[in-house]
Design a protein around this nucleic acid. Sequence first.
DNA 1: GCCAACGTTGGC
DNA 2: GCCAACGTTGGC
Length: 179
Amino acid sequence: MLHLVLQIAAGPKGDNSRQMVILITMTKYWLIKSEPSCYSIDDFAKEKVTAWDGVRNYQARNYLRDMAKNDKALFYHSSEEPIGIAGISKVVREAYPEGQQFDRKSPYYDGKSTADNPRWFSPDLKFERKFKDILTLAELRKEKKLSRMELLKKGSRLSVQPVRESEFREILDMAEKKK
DNA sequence: GCCAACGTTGGC
DNA sequence: GCCAACGTTGGC
């Protein structure tokens, strides 16, 4: 949320009555990775809304916590050909304590997490759409406008990453043109 | 607080 | 299946 304070006209010193506060919600953009053998865009399309759980990296967790309602996230298929962006999702619930950290039977169980002091958080994401064709990593690398993307940097392996609005738009354009 | 050893991610 | 690039762990 961005807070803009507009001074309409100068009042007497210390008098703020002429200030107008404007609240603007800025949509943020993200990229989330998933191995399709584990959870694919088709699984997502079927489930419609899912908790983005199982993330066990602190930086990725911080990004998950930064997600706000209505933010958009590119859904990326990693590890299996065709590797690339498969579709889009939307944040429908801000991050809350992730369930699997408390589940002893889960591979994501974390004994150091307590209900009072949870370590991991997950937002709820809603399936928005699947691209007709996966926008491949090779295609993304060829586009100069995307050269600053976190995803394309050497050694980048974070499973949750911020994406610039311009990059998000460019990716939608590219997906559209592939038809 | 350093850093070696180990584990994981993910493209190739 | 290889391995570079990271992140985490734990002894000191």
